[in-house]
Design a binder for these strands. Structure first.
Length: 876
RNA sequence: GGGCGCAUAGCUCAGCUGGUUUAGAGCACCUGCCUUACAAGCAGGGGGUCGGCGGUUCGAAUCCGUCUGCGCCCACCA
């Protein structure tokens, strides 16, 4: 047995054991005959740094993986990072800007060189940080979504879907991010209610009559792109306009008045300006009415020469100026305040500009159908299942996925254009050349021009659970899985946030269905969002997110892990507060000190076991078994925080506060060997139970319990199993504990020192067997018969406990206490009797329930009798 | 605008298909204790008419309806 320090020092212990685990490659997994248990990490952005959300997510992942490992499974947690194309590219652009370099001035290759340098420099910091948290990832398997093999998988997938006719190229209205200079998918647009104005603008008739109509618009800067004015054909108010032409204000271009049912007669003035280039609905109206498309906003969100006015100005600057000009020109009727939803880019927070452009799309109908079926059939379980509804809704209304991005950082779209504008899709340039030559025989490599765009990041991350094992599999449904893939796939559980349920989870299911014919995981545990005490989402801009590494340094990783888990039921948001981490630290201290106590005992081999110790061992053994059963059940339902709380209470309240107090020898006395052995065994089991949550302190203590050898670890110890449970004994013991609390209560109330011996008389169903427990925990002598003189009495269940207090008690105080209790009991009895007097109740309720009520009645009566007796005795 | 979810102690939550001594836990709080493992601790204690109203039932925190207040998702009525 090793010396144990007075205080637990997490910093030193954590680094030591993490290095030990790595040195022994305990986290590494290879396929073998054991049952696999697999988790793939939700890959964080390669240039990201650890935040509290990661802490929560990865702690949960680590708890699951460590638990599985101790359950004897071959546990494999695959780590890695995501290239996060738009997020990373914008960071690189910002960094270059700081160096005075503009992206536009670089070639693609030059830019990518910078980007890779950045990735090498900052990439993987977050993976280093995860080590501080204790994450037991198989680092040998670390993957990056843009590494060559995984990129190849992305390309194969693209080609596969293209050849199946699921990927197409087309001109569509897309969500344009004018800051990121790229299209983004519908899912990357966040709508927020935004205060703006509704501008009422007069459009004069082209016939010079001076008549005009008024339209309401939120976007006056787009009027120069108007192609028509539209009214509802059923709208009587505007019948006079049918077939007329009006002039676009400021530019005086003539446009027709058209009729379309789309127009809502109750909104605004019932007249709509149609701007096909800059509004999705207008675009559709334009298609129906064959209207010209006039684009006046460029990729940067500035007005171009086609606008004729405010050329070169940013769209919001132009808005102000156009309004001024309208006013001056007499075209502005009035302005009203108006709040409407505006789309923002998830990544850059820029206001999304609907923009017509040529993009690549993946047809979602059939994929979404499969993915919906996977969840509805229960093959993939969402935890909690409240997300089923939104999942279904999304799957049923999903649009085709815009997968092209006008960026450089990412997998470049494998399409090559021929000089005549036609294109071929192929995995390599060589193949593309062959394909192209089938179209035009004389094509040379120099004639081919590869598409400039890259693929959406999610187009690579949706392959993650497959490609991390076998990058050949995606894109090749007939591929024979390699050893890793066939062993580890499907993975078991996925822990992630609900915010990427559709971005990522749903699409992984689609990819799994498509290429493996099997869902990529069984359970999806959706965590909440980590918020601060005030309920605000943790964010860098608010500055309300602590640095997890600071917390780890201050409290220890185990404390941080426990603190995060304590308050994290699945799907609910987490209200982070540092006090939770303090609680974790305190628990570490408790565990530490309990072992300090036990390890300090001297053992006397031949000594007989005190009765209190024998009972304590029997009790804790049963309680441990029962709790292990409960904990297993809670884990199976992913009720991690409840499982943790059960172990926490078992350790602290039951083992430390009760068990150790019962078996603790008097100061300087030795402990008998039986008790000692049991105490150590219990402690070791408790360490194993809590190890998945608190890996460091448990390893430290487990290692110090006896001489261990290199290569031994608590990590691979088996989860303690539950033995038979003597429920009757546990109940009897619980009753005794209540008696102890009652006696302690009287001591506190009467200010009687804990060590002052007391005689206590018991009447009723209290097992005499447990008297030694009472005696040790409450410092009393248990007596039979009737007490003489002053007593203070209380009732537990149907046991009357009378504490003999000759000379110590104040009768009037005792009387009022007893009277209050009597009144409470009478009220209770009355309630029970009211129920029993109800004929309907007796007739309709199940017999067992009625019997239960009768038992309550009888118990209450006996308690009342006992209390009355005590009061009568007091009166004497 | 549509859909989903949530309202239980000061805070965070349990309470599964209605009946287990007239609601539980952790934290916080209050009162005693520096009792030789631990003051980051020990012992004790207070605190909720289970959001409002109505209904079903012998019986409702638990089921149904409705109202109120939150949260989330979806949706570009200009």
């Amino acid at each position: 047995m090793n010396e144990i320090k007075a205080k637990y020092n997490p910093a030193e212990v954590e680094d030591k054991w993490y290095a030990y685990w790595i040195r022994n490659r305990f986290f590494h997994s290879e396929p073998d005959s054991r049952e696999p248990y697999t988790i793939v990490i939700p890959p964080p952005n390669v240039t990201g740094i650890l935040h509290m959300g990661h802490v929560l997510n990865n702690t949960l992942n680590d708890v699951l993986i460590r638990k599985a490992r101790m359950d004897g499974k071959n546990a494999c947690w695959v780590p890695g990072t995501d290239h996060a194309s738009i997020a990373t590219e914008s960071k690189v652009v910002a960094k270059l800007a700081g160096m005075g370099i503009r992206k536009e001035d670089l070639t693609r290759d030059e830019f990518l060189k910078y980007a890779w340098e950045w990735k090498e420099e900052h990439g993987g910091i977050i993976l280093q940080q995860l080590r501080k948290l204790g994450a037991s990832c198989d680092w040998d398997r670390t993957k990056f979504t843009m590494e060559p093999a995984l990129s190849d998988a992305v390309i194969s997938t693209f080609v596969h879907f293209y050849r199946k006719g699921l990927i197409y190229r087309g001109v569509r209205m897309v969500n344009w991010d004018p800051v990121g200079h790229t299209a983004v998918s519908d899912e990357e647009v966040i709508h927020r209610e935004t205060a703006s104005h509704l501008y009422h603008v007069k459009y004069f008739l082209a016939d010079g009559s001076g008549k005009y109509l008024t339209i309401a618009t939120t976007r006056p800067e787009t009027i120069m792109a108007d192609a028509a004015i539209c009214v509802n054909p059923a709208d009587e108010r505007h019948k006079w306009l049918h077939g007329k032409k009006v002039l676009v204000p400021l530019v005086n271009r003539e446009i027709p008045v058209i009729e379309d049912d789309y127009v809502d007669m109750t909104f605004g003035t019932g007249c709509l300006k149609v701007t096909p280039a800059h509004d999705i609905h207008d675009y559709e109206i334009g298609l129906r009415h064959n209207l010209p498309v006039l684009e006046i906003i460029d990729d940067h969100g500035c007005l171009n020469e086609k606008a004729e006015v405010c050329v070169g100005q940013d769209r919001f600057v132009a808005r102000e100026n156009v309004v001024k000009m309208l006013q001056e020109a007499g075209n502005l009727d009035h302005i009203e305040d108006y709040t409407s939803p505006v789309g923002y880019s998830e990544r850059t927070d820029a206001v999304i500009e609907p923009k017509l452009s040529t993009q690549w799309f993946l047809k979602m109908d059939s994929l979404a159908k499969m993915a919906l079926e996977s969840v509805e059939s229960g093959k993939v379980k969402l935890i909690p299942d409240k997300y089923m509804g939104t999942y279904r809704h999304w799957m049923e209304t999903v649009h085709d996925w815009c997968i092209s991005r006008q960026l450089w950082w990412g997998q470049r779209i494998p399409a090559w254009y021929l000089p005549d504008g036609s294109f071929v899709v192929a995995e390599t340039q060589q193949e593309a050349l062959e394909e192209a030559r089938k179209l035009q025989s004389g094509i040379t490599p120099a004639d081919l021009r590869q598409d400039e765009d890259v693929l959406d990041t999610w187009f690579s991350s949706w392959l993650w659970p497959i490609s991390v094992f076998d990058a050949e599999a995606p894109g090749h449904p007939d591929h024979k899985p390699n050893r890793d893939l066939s062993y580890y796939y499907p993975t078991n559980d996925l822990v992630t946030g609900p915010d990427i349920l559709f971005f990522w989870v749903a699409r992984m299911i689609m990819a799994g269905d498509s290429f493996m014919g099997e869902e990529p995981f069984r359970n999806v545990y959706l965590t909440g969002i980590v918020r601060d005490k005030l309920g605000r989402k943790m964010s860098k801009t608010l500055g309300n997110s602590p640095d997890p590494l600071d917390l780890i340094a201050k409290y220890g990783a185990d404390a941080v892990r426990l603190g995060m888990l304590l308050c994290s039921s699945a799907g609910n948001d987490i209200f982070y507060d540092e006090s939770q981490i303090e609680q974790g630290r305190n628990f570490c201290g408790k565990i530490w000190n309990s072992w300090r106590l036990v390890s300090g005992w001297s053992v006397e081999e031949g000594a007989s076991q005190p009765e209190a110790s024998r009972l304590a061992v029997k009790w804790f053994d049963n309680l441990l078994s029962r709790t292990i059963g409960d904990v297993e059940d809670l884990y199976s339902k992913f009720r991690i925080s409840d499982a943790l709380m059960a172990i926490y209470k078992l350790f602290w309240d039951d083992y430390c506060s009760c068990y150790l107090e019962l078996v603790k020898p008097s100061f300087g006395e030795p402990v008998d060997a039986h008790t000692y052995e049991a105490t150590v065994t219990f402690f070791e089991k408790l360490l194993k139970l809590i190890h998945p949550v608190m890996p460091f302190i448990t390893e430290e203590l487990w290692q110090s319990m006896e001489q261990r050898h290199e290569g031994e670890t608590i990590m691979f110890q088996r989860t303690p199993s539950a033995g038979p449970v003597d429920a009757a004994f546990l109940d009897a013991f619980a009753l005794a504990q209540e008696v102890v609390m009652g006696i302690r209560g009287i001591r506190a109330q009467k200010k009687i020192a804990p060590k002052q011996p007391l005689d206590v008389y018991f009447e009723g169903a209290l097992s005499e067997e447990l008297y030694p427990v009472l005696s040790k925990l409450a410092g009393i002598k248990a007596c039979k018969g009737t007490p003489e003189g002053s007593v203070s009495s209380f009732i537990v269940g149907t046991v009357k406990c009378s504490v003999s207090l000759e000379g110590l008690v104040d009768d009037s105080e005792e009387r009022s206490r007893l009277e209050a209790e009597l009144a409470r009991q009478k009220g209770f009895l009355e309630g029970v009797r009211r129920k029993l007097a109800n004929e309907n109740f007796v007739a309709h309720a199940p017999e067992a329930v009625v019997a239960g009520e009768r038992k309550k009645e009888a118990d209450a009566l006996s308690r009342i009798e006992a209390l009355e007796k005590s009061l009568a005795a007091l009166a004497k």
